[in-house]
Amino acid sequence: MEVEDLDFRYENGYKVFQNINLRAEKSKFTAIVGPSGVGKSTLLRLLGAFLKPEKGRVLLHGKPVLRPTPLISMVHQSIVTFPWMTAEENVALSVKTKNLPKDEVKRISSKALEMVGLQGFNDLYPKEMSGGMRQRVAVARSLAADPKILLMDEPFAHLDELTAEGLRQDIYNILFNEESPLETVIMVSHNLTEVIELSDTVFILNGNPATIVAKVDIDLPRPRSPRDPEFDRVLDTLYSYLTIKGGKKA
């Protein structure tokens, strides 16, 4: 997925982005970080074509993305499930658009739930689940749509630290296992530890209007530990880019 010369402004005229360029490589976990209020979630919505850019374009396999598509699937910061549907029905929602036979829909939904570690919880309603389980349902729903790109907007922000850590450890394997058709994951976060733990490439968004001020590749071996001195070095690098003011280092 590529973003070319993207500009965007809100309805009230405020210019949020100017000249955003980035490229998310195949089989890589990409993160976008930036200070609070810089427009990280807005950028993710532009990548998913939920918002229209003022200028520039978003490309998938070289073709412009002009409207939302199941090929680019979004996992929200606020964990979104439908309270009137069971876990399985929530997941099946993304398969229904394919007009498959009922049995096939059930099979795909069950498999997606199994992938995120929720086998046996098919008939539970969201109210009967913890926050972590609900977020797994949301991830399963996205995966069941067979997306090429997964957009994740601070997916662990509303979970307690213990649950978030558990899900973080699972998520990379869930997303890039052999059965997953996923090509790329793009995650937005302000939690730098989480970003280093998961990402292969990090884009730093900063400035006003915001633009990409740096790209950092992380090639630490997995699983990654925050106690590793190399982890700290990457953390310092990211932190220094985030303290940039007006696009220049402070």
Partner: peptide, 11 residues
């Protein structure tokens, strides 16, 4: 978010 999911799934 519900609107975004409906758009996303091309319903």
């Amino acid at each position: 978010e519900y609107n975004e999911i409906m758009q996303n799934l091309d319903m």
